[in-house]
Amino acid sequence: MRVPIVFVDANVLYSKTLRDWLFLLRKETCGDMFTVASSNDVIAEVLYRIRRNNIGGPGHLTSNVKEKIEASLDELVRDFPAGMVFPGDDTHDTHVYAASIACGATYLVTDDAGFSDVSDELPYEVHSADSFFQLIGENVPRAVDNVIRAQISYYRSQSDSKTLSEALTLAKCPTFAEIVYQHLQAMSGGNTTAGIAESVKPVVIDDAAETPAVPEGVL
């Protein structure tokens, strides 16, 4: 059976919180549960947004992000056929649609509602970052535990003292934030984390809340 390919959109890769969770979960599952793909166009969009929101930042800011994203991907889509037609309303999403097809994606992870609106017309399953992380938690809770352990020391070292759950909530992953919180509670008590992700009901995101404009550092 083919390992599912997850194509990741720019609105997910832009956030350091989401990048870290995605690539650390990929590492913990050893590529046996999913592999990660994206495209040159998506990375260009990520870098454009980072530079736009950090006009006076150093030159290495974007180059570091580019290098580390590319090093973490299993596949970088460099080309796809011309003339593909995205069934959604926003033609600017065509390159994501086309690159996802070109790599044979099983899942598209995006926070762009335009894909969810036409999900029945797409050859792959559409997930938000929140729902995809919950899916991983349902199937391999131990991987979530291990990523939590790997990230705790980083978050404790930050001057703003955000918790793992708070960072995920700011990154518009409220359901997974609650899952991580409950994992931490169970782990601290020496209890199993199996079944937690299934028990957490999806949390509706407040569309009025803005994604942080400044990326939280680099990978």
Rank of each mutant, 00 (worst) to 15 (best):
N40Y: 12
Y154W: 09
L184Q: 14
A102Q: 12
E70M: 14
A99F: 11
A98K: 06
V218D: 11
I205D: 10
L164H: 08
Q185I: 02
E198C: 05
V118M: 06
D160N: 13
D111T: 02
R19V: 04
F34W: 01
A10D: 04
E67L: 05
S15F: 10
K66H: 14
V77L: 12
D20K: 08
A99Q: 10
I205Q: 10
E70S: 13
S38I: 00
Y97L: 01
D20F: 02
L219K: 08
S15D: 13
F80H: 09
A209T: 15
V109T: 09
K16M: 09
A129L: 01
I148G: 09
L13W: 01
I205H: 14
V200I: 15
C30H: 11
L164F: 12
V126F: 08
D130W: 01
P174A: 01
G57M: 01
R78S: 12
K162H: 11
T192N: 12
A37W: 00
S188L: 13
V96K: 05
N64K: 06
R49L: 15
P4N: 09
D32Y: 02
A197C: 12
R52W: 01
E210V: 14
T169R: 15
V42K: 10
Y14G: 06
N64Y: 06
E70N: 07
A102P: 07
L47H: 06
H127W: 03
D79A: 02
G114W: 03
G88L: 03
V8R: 12
I152M: 15
T193D: 04
P212Q: 06
N40I: 04
T106M: 06
M187V: 10
C173Q: 03
E45W: 00
F176A: 00
V126Y: 07
A213H: 05
D145G: 00
A167Y: 13
H183V: 03
V204F: 13
A102C: 05
L73D: 13
A167V: 04
V65S: 05
L73G: 11
Y155Q: 09
M84F: 08
G114K: 05
V77Q: 11
L13K: 05
F80G: 03
P212I: 01
V77H: 12
L219V: 03
T211W: 03
T91G: 01
S128Y: 02
L168D: 13
D206R: 11
D89I: 05
V140K: 13
P141M: 05
I196G: 09
N64F: 07
A129V: 00
N139A: 07
A208W: 10
T35H: 02
F80Y: 15
S38V: 02
E75L: 14
N54K: 04
V65T: 09
V144S: 08
V85S: 15
C173T: 03
V46I: 07
L108T: 02
P4C: 06
G114L: 03
V180D: 14
G189L: 12
A194H: 05
V12P: 05
T192D: 11
D79F: 15
T110C: 01
K162T: 00
E138W: 04
L164D: 14
